[in-house]
Amino acid sequence: MYTTELDKNAARQAPALSLEDSELLAAFEARVANDEFIEPKDWMPEAYRRTLTRQISQHAHSEIVGMLPEGNWLTRAPSLSRKAILLAKIQDEGGHGLYLYCAAETLGTSREEMIDALHQGKAKYSTIFNYPSLNWADIGAIGWLVDGAAIMNQVPLQRTSYGPYARAMIRVCKEESFHQRQGYDLLLAMVNGTPAQKAMAQDALNRWWWPSIMMFGPPDDNSPNSAQSIRWRIKRETNDELRQKFVDATVPQAELLGLTVPDPDLKWNEERGHYDFGDINWEEFYAVVRGEGPVAKERMKARRKAWDEGAWVRAAADAHEAKQSRKRAAA
């Protein structure tokens, strides 16, 4: 799964630099421009640290919240095999969240602070998870489109300039391909099933297509941090470049399924060598970013419930540890 830079103003204030800092900054910029990796104990500008902390923690939150729309279907999977696959995928998403929280923690923010920010509604996560998963074909569409979009974004992040983030992305990308393929496989089974099953697959595509291509974030001319993030090699490609790549890769896959992409303006442009596609409803995107997504409240409620109901397990583990250390001390 994936998130994009959602909080547009946070990285903009540039504090005054001392002479020493400006020398360090110049050395830092040179290292990054030279494609060197920055590691946790290296000097880095505060804005770089802030931007990355925000981006990686949002990415981690997205993985964790991303378990919810799929978890919704676990007990209703149509076969044991599909259930086992879905369970494994959801477990992976949890794992991806953990890799990413660890990477974010190396920048000096604790896990506790990040999780509290999420639960208090102060942190963002990918807009895509605030849409409901209404039928079983949605599980296929999420794997194919949502994870597909995530892969498109995460592949270049494997070379992002911050070492721990890049290493987490390598691990994530290795596992993500299974997510997309199982989704496509699920949809293949449905389009080759009864007419009603095929209609469910089309319905899922109709609802997930636009939110998926919005996942790449605002258009480049309204993405003020992009230039800075690209200069610092946090990002390697712009939102619009990645979005175009995704559309180009995905449209033929929809055709192979015999499904119609819900965009009347979608057309191959011979001259550009890319698909042209219709205007994106950015009002909807910004509304979802503001927390007005169809199931935003339910998602946070479910997340907090899981956290609160797991509290006794954490308390028991603490009590066990305390007892063991008392025993060790007494021995």
């Binding site: 794992g95 660890c102 583990a317 603490d318 540890e321």
Partner: peptide, 17 residues
Amino acid sequence: GSVHAPDAQLALRHARD
């Protein structure tokens, strides 16, 4: 990578998962 855990045994289990 790394994991959070209250003690070594749970750290091993979390690391495995």
